[in-house]
Design a protein around this nucleic acid. Structure first.
Lengths: 244, 244
DNA sequence: CGTCGTTTTGACGTATTTCAACTTGAGTGG
DNA sequence: CCACTCAAGTTGAAATACGTCAAAACGACG
């Protein structure tokens, strides 16, 4: 389906062996060191170019997808075209946390960069979960984390100003980038466009631009030309927490 | 804790025996008829008056709570006092879907009416879930439903107008009231104040009032004096779907 | 009868949207 | 190497949806 092709050249033949996020991503189901290589290794891998849809909401799928490399986002479209980005996906993320339990994709996912993703057969994933309480608890914990995140975002969209929303979104991404060691000197590649920030925060691209410019002028963060640089994290946090 | 007391007078001694929502609420973990009485019967019950907090976010709790009678809502408060209502709770709802898996309350819950709620010991709930895949799948399904609902609400708050948000909230409540047979002649008691609708939709009570008045003037719904009456459900749905 | 919580009304302020024009930079092809 | 295109970002002016404030009306309750 789509343009994603299953690859098998030697360098990609067993990507997990050298996967940099093997111990921090979802593949590690909370197991002891050394244990994990036998547990959640994808059955196959796919790749995509930038700006490509790798799955569509409602589409049936025998696999749960896990993002191995690159950036993506999951979103919903209202009948009249308005978009809401539900979350951004970084390497190590399950493409949908619901995937282990349902037979169809629970959202449309589009890439921001070239990506590689793994396919985990749902049936075998489920039988693993059922056979080992630790797996179950790990998955349950992921679900709860997701619910927490969603409920937090609910408060953001419902009750926070534009500048707060943008600051919180960026801050959340920074946290996750740090966990994955993707931040060097508080900077990294940042393929998220203003349009995406707008669709995630419920604002207009134009207004997002104004907010970013304001924070750049005030020496807080600098997002430009596909790069993010965090200059004054504590101020960013103050903005996000609405404490002047 | 709080003003909630464990009651044991005869009429309330085994409320599950005559529980009207025994087969539709969360107590029924998707089992066959006749099976359920041995499964999810609360260990004890509590009651509360209207406008009382029955649990607080972060507070440790050995029990998962389930609402047996009455209305309540779960919410978060930002540091500066702004409130976001996360969901409304009707009879049969688990007070937090996360409850089976975590040792503390994941949100503050306040009642709208007098309520009765049951306490399910988490440890025994967990061992039930672990012992029977069907239980697990039922709980997982609830989590996924919750995530779906939250993601839908995210789109509402991020991308929909005031009138749409209010219409969708009411419509969602109507659906759930219907499921529970709480609607007679498309009307029922409705202890939700404009202030609550505002905190759920991210609007001002005053603006919510304007939207409700508009829908009343147009003969769509009538919310007044603690009562809800649905007059023209199809128009309500048109408003909610933004199809003029 | 007064009190209190809730809703209503009107006038006004503002954060954010909308629209349209312009800049910038990267990519492409001649 | 330059001309072209196209996506992304910027700017400014005008429109509007929603918020704020203050006062009045309303009904429930003691």
């Amino acid at each position: 389906m789509n343009d994603s092709r299953t690859q098998t050249p030697e360098a990609i033949c067993n990507p997990c062996k050298h996967c940099p996020i093997r111990d921090t991503g979802t593949c590690d189901l909370g197991l002891q060191a050394g244990e994990h290589l036998t547990t959640l290794t994808p059955d196959s891998f796919g790749t995509s170019r930038a700006r490509e849809k790798i799955c569509r909401k409602g589409e049936p799928s025998p696999d749960a997808l896990i993002l191995c490399r690159g950036w993506a986002y999951r979103f919903d479209v209202l009948p009249d075209g308005r978009r809401q980005i539900l979350d951004f996906l970084l390497p190590g993320d399950l493409i949908s946390i619901c995937a282990p339990f349902r037979n169809e994709h629970s959202g449309t996912v589009q890439t921001l960069t070239k990506t590689m993703f793994g396919r985990l057969n749902r049936k075998s994933l489920q039988s693993k979960i059922l056979s080992e309480p630790r797996y179950l608890m790990r998955i349950a914990k992921s679900c709860i984390d997701d619910i927490d995140r969603l409920e937090g975002t609910l408060g953001d969209l419902g009750r926070r100003s534009a500048i707060e929303r943008v600051a919180r979104l960026i801050l959340g991404l920074i946290r996750r980038l740090e966990e994955r060691d993707m931040l060097t000197d508080m900077a990294c590649e940042f393929p998220v466009r203003q349009e995406h920030i707008a669709d995630a925060t419920g604002l207009t691209p134009i207004h997002v631009g104004r907010m970013l410019r304001q924070m750049r002028d005030e020496g807080v963060i600098d997002i430009r030309k596909g790069w993010l640089r965090v200059i004054d994290e504590s101020t960013l946090q103050r903005i996000a927490e609405h404490t002047h």
